[in-house]
Amino acid sequence: MSAPDPVAVLGVGMHPWGKWGRNFVEYGKVAAREALADAGVDWTDVDFVAGADTMRNGYPGYVSGATFAQALGWTGSRVASCYAACASGATALEAARTRILAGLSDVALVVGADTTPKGFLAPNAGDRPTDPDWLRFRLFGATNPTYFALYARRRMDLWGATDEDFARVKVKNARNGLANPNARYRKEVTVEEVLGSPMVASPLRLLEICATSDGAAAVVLASEAAARRIGSDGVTVRAISTVTPTYPNVVPDLPDLAADSAVAVPAPDTTFKASIAQACYEEAGIGPDELSLAEVYDLSTAMELDWYEDIGLCGAGEAEKLLRDGATEIGGRIPVNASGGLACFGEAVPAQALAQVCEVVWQLRGQAGDRQVDGARTGITANQGLFGHGSSVLLAR
């Protein structure tokens, strides 16, 4: 398959993340208007709206494309609503990009917003016995913190990761988030403070697991012709991956621990998470050695280390060394989560994948302020949604 034509990113925008207690549509409108202003286009210039769905917010959340189109003012634009859990934003972005590449749209707006409950995210109502993620909630009792902890314990058993390694990820991301005006948590922490926070699911502590947040993000995409007419800074989407697992590497892909809990069964040669970014590299013809930065899905500090290997920044078992050497710091060889990541934002599920894209765009433009990665030219995002939804976006200028 030949690489598709690049699609221009004309604008990006966000609503700051926190616990605001308002309707998710309000956040989405703010992010959308910021993205339109950033793009230099009027709302009436948009001919397609893709909304990332949020199931917790009732019927308007199920039909978010139409919800945001109505909130911004009916103009007759085409709409789509996309649900893929934490990958919803990338799925909506892919819907917009595909329509542009098909010649059916010139300017598209993609919006994701959420209002979340307190505590960890529980599974949606109803029985879904064919959904592996529902099964791990109901049959294993593996709520998200437990799920994250199993991965963390596996890293310790397989590769010798330590509590201090996990804490260093939080320290790095918290430092990055200090310079991000959209982040919810903007406070530097030490390794000792992280290790002193309450234990949630051993070995992960409170400061090593992301919170739930309200927030929104939006992106304006355009065809090459529209970008030339309107004006573009040269940032383009080079690839989007929304892959599903390949048997036998299926979700939930729980760590396969031996009967002796001190001994872990070696990881398979490839995993579902590794296939997510790989699909992007293959589509764009760009490899991980050409990246300037990465934004990855750090639901826990240990999970960020897994992503280093899954997106090809290092080999299996080498993530801790990459971290300890400072390679993933701003100023290092390959900065990861320069935005502060979910450690500083928390989860606003349908907005997460779009927020990652916003950060990479700001970095590629040189607009990231004190968290700027020098000379950034290429960046990738990566996350994963329930029921086998992959999400990765590769951008370049």
Rank of each mutant, 00 (worst) to 15 (best):
S261L: 14
F48E: 09
P248W: 06
P350A: 01
L254W: 03
L221K: 05
D127W: 12
A279G: 05
P245L: 13
P16C: 11
T116P: 15
I230S: 13
A343V: 08
S213F: 06
Q352E: 01
D260T: 10
N337L: 09
V169Q: 00
L257H: 03
A316G: 09
T67N: 08
E94R: 12
A351L: 00
V110L: 12
A258P: 08
F140G: 10
G231Q: 12
N176W: 01
D45V: 01
A52Q: 00
Y308K: 10
A3D: 04
A267R: 09
A85Y: 00
I100N: 03
R371S: 01
G196A: 13
V12N: 02
V251F: 14
D370G: 08
G369D: 03
Q367S: 11
A353F: 02
A161M: 08
G366D: 04
W20D: 12
L207W: 02
T381A: 08
P350G: 01
A284S: 04
A179P: 00
L204Y: 02
G58Y: 06
V349P: 03
S392I: 04
G388N: 01
P129S: 14
M303P: 13
E224K: 10
V243A: 12
V25H: 04
W362T: 10
P248A: 10
N337Y: 02
M55A: 12
V191E: 07
T130R: 14
E34A: 15
I380A: 00
C210F: 06
T44W: 08
R33G: 12
G369K: 00
Y297Q: 06
S197H: 01
R136S: 12
A211P: 11
E309I: 05
F24G: 09
R228E: 15
Y27W: 02
G215F: 03
M199R: 12
P132C: 14
N23C: 09
R333D: 13
G89D: 07
R136W: 07
E192R: 05
E193L: 08
I240R: 04
V357T: 00
A211G: 08
D133K: 03
S213W: 02
P16Q: 04
G332C: 10
I276V: 09
D131C: 14
N337S: 11
V41N: 13
Y308L: 15
P245G: 14
A258K: 15
K321G: 13
D370C: 05
A226E: 11
G390S: 08
D260C: 15
S241Q: 13
T116C: 15
S213N: 08
A37D: 14
R138E: 14
G160P: 07
N144D: 14
G13E: 11
G119Y: 10
T270E: 13
P6W: 00
S339N: 11
G340W: 05
A92W: 01
A294K: 05
L323D: 03
R397E: 07
L395W: 00
L150R: 03
A343E: 01
A274Q: 11
